[in-house]
Design a protein around this nucleic acid. Sequence first.
DNA 1: AAGGTAGGCAACCGCCACACG
DNA 2: TCGTGTGGCGGTTGCCTACCT
Length: 205
Amino acid sequence: MALVMTDGTPKKELNRGAWTAQEDQKLAQIIEVHGAKRWKSIAATAGLNRSGKSCRLRWMNYLRPNIKRGNISDQEEDLILRLHKLLGNRWSLIAGRLPGRTDNEIKNYWNSHLSKKIINQQTEEKPSRVARTTTTTCWSKRRKTCDSEKDQIQVTEDGTSKGHEGSVNNIDVDELLDFSVEGPLMSLEWLRKFSEFKECLCGFS
DNA sequence: AAGGTAGGCAACCGCCACACG
DNA sequence: TCGTGTGGCGGTTGCCTACCT
């Protein structure tokens, strides 16, 4: 039975599935003119019978300039492993530290390659060690909540926590977690700072 | 050569937060 | 203040391909 709108007109079925080269071209052209915003109107303007969400996803994961595809280097893999250990399944944050990589690609890479690696490693290690690696999952489940929580928690050097004024152990939290600027690959210095910060939050719970 | 299976990846789904009227 | 629309995110699905029997 065909779907109809409230005024009785038939509801147009949206295109689904793989994108064609023509659709890609149309989308890229429209974004070049209007910018990557208002995805619903982009879809309409381009004459693409796609949802705004679908257009956004295609652009972000495939058409965007400077996207690197495939061939994840050992350095990048190591970084993903480290960041996942720290951040959990916060793929967008992890991707933010890997220029040219998308959250979807990293997520897929994790699920198809790295998760197996981890499982193999864990089966060779003691169970207690396995448990320790899962402590960061609290960061991934409800990202917004966690993000706001990070602004509320301050841990002092004597181990007590109190209302937070933007720093933990002299670490500027906002700066530390600002992934808006694409920089070079994650520096060891950043990792060190983040580990310190995370220990403050998790070490006293 | 044909059928079955597993892996990889693109795309979709559902939920949540935020902006705006 | 509330309702609605939109964007962003992580989880999941399903298709395609390579490999195995």
